[in-house]
């Protein structure tokens, strides 16, 4: 169809190879996410979210594309602000979880006692339903904003730690590690020079795929009423608030914020998948 338009600029993607397409998807998705996150700093909640009681509970229209809430605030602005908070919490939680996963993953490679210890800690964290664990940790940190961040951050490392532990075990049986040990290299040197370069791609993909989980759990926990204070525009709080207005038929209060959250989660999944494709090209075309 586009054969005779080969050099037509807007269609360059149609003929681009998989690598360029993958990169393009990653860049576009990241730009959307970053702009949502940054908009948090540029929108002033005090001026953008004015209460306007002549305009309450409006159904979606061109003026307010997500409708307005019971105080006449524009739901689109509230949703964007909420998503910004969610991405921020997700980022912070992923950083904490990654650090823990890397520390525990490398600890498991030291000796069998340490390995057993790491395995049982993973087992312990896996034996309690995730939501209850986050509730417990956020209570033990005294609740509030930091309670939620720490609760989400301290519980998402288990899948990555499990993968790292298995991967490191596999790498340690290879011959070049044995050789290095014979040559008298220190354990730290082996970790830094031999193991780390081989697991770095898994860490990167693991971190990106951790994001959506962290965001969802943050939303769930604030939906349940833990942590973030009611006047923060977090998605979970918006949805919890919307529950009170459902019976009056204000469906847009719940529908659009949740849909945007789903959109964000799918974007992160998309980025994760495509980064995985870029970093492990050998598994792409199977």
């Amino acid at each position: 169809m586009f054969k005779n338009k080969k050099n037509n600029k807007p269609w360059f993607l149609y003929h681009a190879n998989l690598r360029v397409k993958t990169l393009f998807i990653i860049i576009v998705a990241s730009l959307i996410l970053i702009s949502i996150f940054l908009s948090n700093f540029f929108i002033n909640p005090n001026t953008a979210l004015t209460t306007d009681f002549s305009n309450i509970n409006q159904a979606p229209s061109f003026e307010h594309i997500f409708g307005t809430d019971w105080m006449g605030r524009d739901m689109f602005v509230r949703t964007i602000l909420g998503l910004g908070i969610s991405i921020g919490v997700g980022a912070f939680a992923s950083v904490i979880s990654t650090i823990i996963a890397i520390i525990l993953g490398s600890l498991s490679s030291v000796n069998s006692v340490a390995d057993e210890f790491v395995a049982s800690v993973i087992d312990l964290f896996g034996s309690i339903p995730h939501i209850l664990l986050i509730i417990l940790i956020s209570i033990s940190c005294g609740g509030g904003f930091y309670g939620v961040i720490l609760g989400v951050g301290l519980t998402h490392w288990t899948p990555l730690a499990r993968v790292l532990r298995a991967e490191i075990k596999k790498i340690k049986t290879t011959e070049f590690i044995k050789l290095s040990e014979q040559l008298g290299k220190s354990k730290w040197w082996i970790i830094k020079k031999h193991i780390f370069p081989l697991v770095i791609s898994q860490i990167i993909v693991g971190v990106i795929l951790m994001f959506p989980h962290a965001i969802m759990h943050e939303a769930s926990i604030s939906f349940l009423g833990f942590g973030l204070s009611p006047h923060e525009p977090a998605i979970g709080i918006i949805l919890a608030e919307a529950m009170g207005y459902l019976s009056t038929g204000a469906w847009w209060l719940a529908f659009y914020p949740g849909l945007s959250l789903l959109f964000i989660v799918l974007l992160f999944d998309l980025i994760g998948e495509n980064v995985h494709k870029l970093l492990n090209p050998q598994t792409t075309n199977t």
């Binding site: 959506p212 969802m216 939303a219 769930s220 939906f223 949805l239 919307a242 529950m243 459902l246 469906w251 719940a254 529908f255 949740g258 959250l261 789903l262 989660v265 799918l266 999944d269």
Partner: peptide, 14 residues
């Protein structure tokens, strides 16, 4: 798999 389960609940409730 990506949607928050409580949001699905809200939609079903609506």
């Amino acid at each position: 798999q990506s949607a928050p389960s409580f949001w699905i609940g809200l939609l079903i409730l609506i």
